[in-house]
């Protein structure tokens, strides 16, 4: 019988909370011929010193067993060795892998945006402090009615790629214009936790892209603007054109250090908008953004600047 199978380590739990105690026992079978009757069992954590166990005893059938309790396991991962002295050398009988970490904290700051280009709902969250253990995150959701008190069909779990804190629910799993309940579940060997729940209609969290803003070119059929005025036109972002939107314009004289002047409540499409009150000698920076009107929605970012 080979020496290694002479001894065997058992541990109280393969994974413990970081800093918690862990108890291990190493037992040597009596028919291990190479050893004398009362072999001295020693322990070693990682590359620390060899040490005696808390207690070594002879069990029925002649089994020798040493037990040790490590009061605070502060390694997130460590090897525990069981040795026996053979002549003037120490022989490893067995090795156990110890792991320690934390149960997952509640994922926080869960938010979702509907991407109209890919028609998918992308949710992101903050995973919380490091757990030092393999931890799985799952975006869970249910279709619902009205204010999400009553849940209906479950939606397929969305599992993010390793290490990522966002997940994309594809269009075919979404029921647009109806509320759904969404939350994140985090799980590892030490426990499970869940984020707060969101109740949202994907179409109420559309990520709107800014409109396209142009200056109207002078042409025979376009009356040139009065002094101190500009002709502008704009169009909403194409994938969102089915949505009623309201827009706002802001402009600022370049290098003037003056704050932006804002023109609110503009329609989503402007064919010919005359902007006046400008100084003729100055160059102006203009930007525009839009938001869904009459229904919930987020402002788009400001459009790229137009210099005129």
């Amino acid at each position: 019988e080979s020496l290694e199978s002479c001894g065997h380590i058992r541990i109280s739990a393969p994974v413990v909370h970081l800093g918690d105690p862990i108890t291990a026992s190493c037992s040597i079978s009596p028919n291990c011929s190479h050893l004398n009757q009362e072999p001295q069992i020693l322990w070693q954590l990682e590359d620390g010193p060899k040490q005696l166990g808390d207690r070594q005893q002879r069990l029925p059938q002649g089994i020798q067993e040493s037990t040790i309790t490590l009061p605070h396991l502060n390694h997130t991962q460590a090897f525990l060795f069981c040795f026996v002295q053979l002549g003037n050398s120490f022989q490893v009988l067995d090795q156990a892998e110890l792991q320690a970490g934390y149960p997952p904290a509640k994922p926080s700051n869960l938010s979702c945006l509907m991407n109209l280009t890919t028609s998918s709902l992308i949710c992101q969250w903050e995973p919380g402090p490091e757990t030092y253990l393999p931890t799985n995150f799952t975006l869970k959701s249910f279709r619902s009615r009205a204010d999400c008190q009553r849940w209906e069909d479950p939606v397929l779990d969305c599992v993010p790629e390793d290490g990522q804190s966002y997940c994309s629910i594809p269009r075919k799993h979404l029921l647009l214009y109806q509320n759904m309940v969404i939350w994140v579940q985090a799980e590892n060997v030490l426990g499970t936790s869940e984020s707060l729940r969101l109740c949202l209609d994907p179409m109420d969290v559309v990520k709107l892209e800014p409109p396209t803003l142009w200056a109207l070119d002078f042409s025979p059929d376009v009356v040139p603007p009065q002094p101190g005025c500009l002709w502008l036109r704009w169009e909403p972002w194409k994938p969102s054109q089915f949505m009623d939107q309201e827009c706002e314009l802001r402009y600022q004289a370049q290098f003037s250090g003056t704050s932006w002047t804002q023109v609110p409540h503009l329609p989503s499409r402007g064919h010919r908008f005359e902007l006046c009150g400008l100084h003729q000698a100055l160059v102006y920076t203009l930007q525009m953004r839009c938001i869904r009107s009459l229904l919930p929605g987020h402002w788009s970012s400001w459009s790229p600047s137009l210099q005129l």
Binding site: Y177, F242, D244
Partner: peptide, 16 residues
């Protein structure tokens, strides 16, 4: 009103 606004938007979305 929200039903009507959302329905009108859904119609425009499908029409497009």
């Amino acid at each position: 009103k929200s039903f009507l606004l959302k329905s009108l938007e859904q119609v425009r979305k499908i029409q497009a």
